[in-house]
Design a protein around this nucleic acid. Structure first.
Length: 272
DNA sequence: GCGGAATGTAGAT
DNA sequence: TCTACCTTCCGCT
């Protein structure tokens, strides 16, 4: 479930199991990362870092494994001893206590410090970062100058890093903003509240390892509906709920293609 | 078993 | 705006 909260959670989980815990056995059962795995095999892991949807495993001060899960990538952790890997495991780490498998990533590459910096430089601020890569003003500078829709801008990783299709749909609903509104018509106050909300929602996402966006007053319990968890693992207002009733107004949730992805919104609650 | 879809992005056109 | 790519899972035959 790879939006930014997933990646930050993975950084935390990789570090907890492997960083500062001695040599790591590094392999690539699937083969596409074999050369780099051989170079790293037996090295200790120093740290793990995340910016938006990019994950970095720091093996030596200047050597990083750059991972991007894309749409399909998955990471699974387990205890030692590791079971025999399946033939889709791109990267496996093992130590005496744990193992972790990476499958289906868009990117899994050994990079230098300079290359890592270049990745940071092309990404917008990340609501989950507290350093200079988490400054919302950098995002608003672009949004406030753009005629592109706010829905497209939120998905543009150069503008904001870490927001994906679920958080985009949900945060726009929570702020009653029409997804087709041009970025330049978003006021500073609106952007401040959207950003603050993304920080809260995504931190909660890291903690719970799922996306929940429904406010207490709109939960199934509060609205007298049966409890429910959406099939992506949380409770949401609009994401993948096309044709079903809005939790707030009862109107029909709509969907449309936007920038090659499915957009979901409530046309009644989110007016221009 | 097959086709389609899925929380993503880069590169070509 | 499109296409390709990485993998899994679900619904349909």
């Amino acid at each position: 479930m790879p939006e930014g909260h997933t990646i930050h959670r993975l950084a935390r989980d990789y570090a907890a199991r492997f960083a500062g815990r001695g040599p790591v056995t590094v392999t690539s059962p699937q083969g596409k990362f074999s050369d780099a795995a051989a170079l790293l095999d037996g090295s200790p892991l120093h740290t793990a870092d995340a910016h938006g949807k990019h994950l970095f495993l720091g093996f030596r001060p200047t050597e990083w494994v750059h991972i991007h899960l894309g749409l399909f990538g998955k990471v699974t952790f387990g205890d030692a001893p590791a079971p025999p890997p399946t033939d889709t495991v791109r990267l496996r780490l093992e130590n005496p206590a744990a193992h972790v498998d990476l499958r289906g990533p868009t990117t899994c590459a050994l990079i230098t410090d300079a290359e890592k910096r270049a990745v940071h430089d092309r990404l917008g601020p990340d609501p989950l970062r507290t350093d200079h890569h988490g400054d919302p003003a950098a995002a608003y500078a672009r949004i406030s100058r753009s005629r592109t829709t706010i829905a497209a801008l939120l998905m543009d990783q150069k503008v904001v890093a870490g927001v994906g299709n679920v958080y985009r749909a949900e945060v726009l609903f929570r702020h009653r903003i029409d997804p087709y509104r041009p970025g330049k018509d978003i006021t500073p106050a609106e952007w401040d509240s959207i950003w603050a909300d993304l920080v809260d929602l995504m931190r909660q996402g890291v903690r719970d390892n799922r996306i929940d966006t429904v406010r207490p007053e709109h939960t199934p319990e509060a609205m007298g509906r049966p409890p429910r968890v959406d099939d992506h693992g949380g409770e949401v207002y609009v994401y993948r709920r096309a044709g079903r009733p809005c939790h707030v107004c009862g109107g029909e949730i709509r969907t449309a293609g936007l920038a090659a992805r499915n957009l979901f919104w409530c046309p009644t609650c989110q007016r221009a």
